[in-house]
């Protein structure tokens, strides 16, 4: 893909993210447990969850990753 197209896609993506992040100003979200009533909770929690999961899997990968021919029969 052209670099300019990629740039445009990033700009529109960030624009959507901003709208969603600040949508909490207008939309009243039900909070069921308290913590989820925090401003833009789903955005923050989703982002941090993914970072957490990627690093956990990286850490596990250090111990459990093997070359593809490990089990050659």
């Amino acid at each position: 893909m052209l670099n300019s197209t990629i740039k445009k896609l990033w700009i529109s993506f960030l624009f959507i993210l901003a709208i969603l992040f600040f949508s909490d100003l207008v939309i009243h979200r039900h909070d069921y447990f308290g913590v989820d009533g925090f401003f833009a909770f789903p955005s923050i929690y989703g982002f941090l969850s993914c970072i957490f999961l990627v690093f956990v899997s990286k850490a596990i990968g250090i111990f459990l990753k093997r070359p593809e021919d490990y089990y050659d029969e």
Binding site: F13, L17, L20, S23, D24, R29, P42, F47, C50
Partner: peptide, 20 residues
């Protein structure tokens, strides 16, 4: 609120994917 929560969750996961 359910739709907006879900979209926030997923789109910011998408951001995390491209950052990582």
């Amino acid at each position: 609120d359910h739709v907006s929560s879900q979209l926030q969750l997923l789109m910011f996961s998408g951001l995390a994917f491209f950052i990582l």
